[in-house]
Amino acid sequence: MSELARWRKYRWQLIYGEAFDPAMQMALDEVLTYRVGRGERPPTLRFWEWTAPAVVIGRFQSLRNEVDLEEANRYGITVVRRITGGGAMLTEPGRVITYSIYAPPELVAGMSFQESYAFLDAWVVEALRALGIDAWYQPINDITSANGKIGGAAQARRHGAVLHHTTMAYDIDPEKVPRVIRIGREKLSDKGVRSAERRVAPLRQQTNLPRETIQEFLIRTFAERHGLEEGALRPDEIDEARELVRTKFGTWEWTAILP
């Protein structure tokens, strides 16, 4: 089956527009993954809007090894832990583009995990290239370009579904990131890639386009390639996510599960 045929087997739904706080974003990912896994909602593409800045750490990261909590606090940055692996990132409203794909596992059946990362972000690489950026997928989980890294993805396979979410830098604050996120020396030890790995090339600098324009272009690319219908979060999905914020994602027990 061709790549496009795989995508086109489903009726994709779009969730886009409403802004949420960091813990709520984490909770919505879990709720929507669960709902798609149970067949209670169609395969979904969600673009995130943030009400507040956050450091989002990976499921398996040590909180204190990754985040300078005092500095984060000083900047008014909330620290949350997501359900997917991968590294810490700083997400500020208007400065990143983040989306989640909630899909049945059949979409990536027969692929290795590594292959599925490139497959699930192929439409984005295509869109960025159409915007004139020399972009490509850098295994395992990076979208990169001739000018530097653009973004990274992470996945979880839970509740009978695949969650794949990606954050791209639109207009990052280069001073703030190293102040709140610790980057150890060992992480930079791959020979030869030290500078390339570290250099981030935000989309604003590469396109001179407003964030909303890029986001709408991404959505249009997905729609033309895979088909996409307008959708919305259901009130019961939002309620369930709020409850998960109270019991899990907004708690210190979860955020510091690996202290």
Binding site: G58, R59, F60, Q61, S62, N65, I83, T84, G85, G86, G87, A88, F113, I140, N141, A154, Q155, A156, R157, R158, K187, L258
Partner: peptide, 15 residues
């Protein structure tokens, strides 16, 4: 013993 990092692991309980 505690193992942490920016790797990917399924299921997470395998940590």
């Amino acid at each position: 013993v505690r193992v942490t990092g920016d790797f990917f692991l399924e299921p997470p309980e395998a940590l």
